[in-house]
Design a protein around this nucleic acid. Sequence first.
DNA 1: CTGTAGACTCGTGTCGACC
DNA 2: GGGTCGACACGAGTCTACA
Lengths: 82, 82
Amino acid sequence: MKRKSFCQVKDRLAEDIKTARAKIGLSQEALAHAAEVDRTYVSQLERGVANPSIQILHRIAAALGSELSISLVNISNEPRDL
Amino acid sequence: MKRKSFCQVKDRLAEDIKTARAKIGLSQEALAHAAEVDRTYVSQLERGVANPSIQILHRIAAALGSELSISLVNISNEPRDL
DNA sequence: CTGTAGACTCGTGTCGACC
DNA sequence: GGGTCGACACGAGTCTACA
């Protein structure tokens, strides 16, 4: 089960969203409305129990006043993030 | 229609995958097999006609020997990426 | 305001065939 | 090897309701 590395991505993204939302002082409800997604889905996203498509992700990012950045970084580079 | 900015993300990702795949000399078929996704779906991904979930994206990235990086960059920062 | 659960819709992802 | 089409399965995303 290499799903662990995948959960890292989900979990990191969840924290990212939660932090960005708190920074601009929005509630999950308000963010959900701004991104035109379901309120309960934002809850799932922020706890890493959802597997969103990039379309939803882009909407969430836009609602957070941010831009969605998706990139394939080469392992050889070792960007050293955690 | 704010779908344009969303298509940018899809299109950029498509080019990213195509380039990374060419770099390691894999065919779409081989990549599809390595990532355990459908061969025709890789074709759709590389031409930006698909809207993948981050799970699929992570599998593709892993098969390309890369790591999937998803982040919410603040517009104010203007990271100036191309 | 947030987490969870059940039921539901529809689009993501699959598969086979053809070009 | 790669693009496209039609049909399909199942999971992403919605909605209601309760803690």
